[in-house]
């Protein structure tokens, strides 16, 4: 059985640069953390590369909880990438 795909969400300028708000992808098994995923996604298109060019200004969440780039990911997770929040 194939592993469940990841749902990857992009917000604000990451969404604009990536040229999409959501995609379903199944990365290779070697992609184990958020940082691995960023490296893998960056190679998918020029838009992805632009979205992830400045990793210091990217925040992330796994299944709607903020996380660090070192956090482990598993099949079926919802992974969101976005800039530092500016609500209020």
């Amino acid at each position: 059985m194939n592993p469940a795909p990841l749902t990857i969400l992009y917000f604000a300028w990451l969404r604009e640069r990536a040229g999409r708000s959501e995609e379903q992808l199944t990365p290779p098994e070697t992609v184990r953390t958020i940082a691995d995923l960023i490296t893998w996604l960056s190679q998918r298109s020029a838009g992805h590369a632009a979205a992830f060019a400045h990793t210091a200004t990217i925040r992330c969440a796994i299944n709607q909880e903020f996380c660090d780039p070192s956090a482990a990911i598993k099949p079926g997770d919802e992974i969101a990438f976005f800039p530092p929040v500016t609500g209020g």
């Binding site: 917000f11 604000a12 903020f66 929040v85 500016t86 609500g87």
Partner: peptide, 14 residues
């Protein structure tokens, strides 16, 4: 509430 909201709630202003 407003201090935490500004840094911990997923909103972005354009």
């Amino acid at each position: 509430l407003i201090d935490w909201l500004k840094t911990k709630a997923p909103f972005w202003k354009q």
